[in-house]
Amino acid sequence: MENRTPIPDLIRPATQPADVDALLQLMETFCHHFGYPFDRPLRQQLIREMQENPSLGSLWLVMDENRPVGYVVLTYGFALEFGGKTALVDELFIEESHRSGGRGRQVLQRIQQTADELGVSVILLQTEKYNPRAKRLYESVDFVDQERSTLMWKK
């Protein structure tokens, strides 16, 4: 694995009201890219809720110079199985033109450092079966496929 020095100001917390528009634009691109539904008013409400209540998680903008080119959302939970506080990489997106240069790897390494500082015992994430590129990225920074059953939910 190539070990690169992290890019200064690679990510920054998206804690300001002005960050909401940048997040929404990137989230819309993410959703369209993967064919997920995008409900702008709901996303805006959820972003503000996270900004107002940091115990829910954290929002990060991925930067290139002074321009947001991606984002990461961590949500927090607690699991006995994993030794306490957990973080889920709920969404990670980097614009197509800023991929393949090691930026995703560096973002995940920075998120791992941040999680350690926050007392997180384990970072969880999921990826679609049809996205082997993402899986290779996650494995390159030591995420391990637990080979568990399909993600299930009930609304």
Results as ranks from 00 to 15, higher is better:
Arg103Trp: 08
Leu46Glu: 10
Leu24Pro: 04
Gln126Arg: 14
Val122Trp: 11
Leu108Arg: 02
Leu10Lys: 01
Gly70Asp: 08
Met1Tyr: 08
Glu139Asp: 07
Leu23Asp: 03
Met50Gln: 05
Val20Cys: 12
Leu118Pro: 00
Asp39Cys: 10
Leu80Phe: 15
Lys155Leu: 14
Leu151Val: 07
Asn53Phe: 14
Asp142Gln: 15
Arg105Val: 00
Asp9Met: 07
Tyr130Cys: 02
Val73Ser: 00
Gly70His: 04
Gly77Gln: 11
Lys154Cys: 13
Val122His: 13
Gly57Tyr: 10
Ala22Lys: 03
Val73Asn: 06
Cys31Arg: 02
Glu81Leu: 12
Gln109Cys: 04
Ile7Thr: 13
Leu74Pro: 03
Gly83Val: 11
Leu23Gln: 04
Leu42Cys: 06
Arg99Asp: 01
Phe93Trp: 06
Ser100Gln: 13
Ile111Asn: 06
Leu59Glu: 01
Leu59Ala: 03
Asn66Arg: 13
Phe143Met: 12
Thr114Leu: 14
Ser58Gly: 11
Glu139Gln: 15
Gln44Met: 05
Arg48Ser: 09
Ala14Gln: 00
Arg133Ile: 08
Ser97Val: 07
Ile11Gly: 02
Tyr76Trp: 11
Glu139Thr: 08
Pro17Ser: 10
Val89Cys: 10
Thr5Trp: 11
Val89Glu: 04
Ser55Trp: 09
Pro41Glu: 11
Pro68Tyr: 05
Ile11Lys: 01
Arg43Asn: 05
Tyr76Pro: 01
Lys129Trp: 12
Leu125Glu: 03
Val144Tyr: 12
Leu59Gln: 03
Ala87Cys: 07
Glu52Ala: 09
Asp116Lys: 12
Val73Ala: 03
Ser97Gly: 09
Asp9His: 08
Phe30Thr: 07
Glu147Gln: 15
Glu2Val: 11
Phe30Glu: 02
Gly77Val: 06
Phe82His: 15
Arg105Ser: 01
Val89Asp: 05
Lys155Gln: 15
Ser121Gln: 10
Gly101Phe: 06
Gln146Gly: 14
Tyr138His: 11
Gln126Cys: 10
Phe34Trp: 13
Arg148Ser: 12
Arg40Pro: 02
Ser100Lys: 13
Ala18Trp: 03
Ala22Ser: 14
Ile123His: 08
His33Gly: 03
Cys31Ala: 15
Glu96Arg: 07
Gly57Leu: 01
Tyr76Ile: 04
Glu139Leu: 10
Ser140Ala: 08
Glu128Gly: 09
Tyr130Pro: 00
Gln51Met: 13
Pro13Phe: 08
Ala14Ile: 00
Asp39Asn: 15
Ile94Ala: 02
Val141Gln: 09
Ser140Trp: 07
Leu92Trp: 04
Met1Lys: 01
His98Asn: 05
Glu52Leu: 04
Arg99Tyr: 05
Arg133Lys: 14
Tyr76Ser: 04
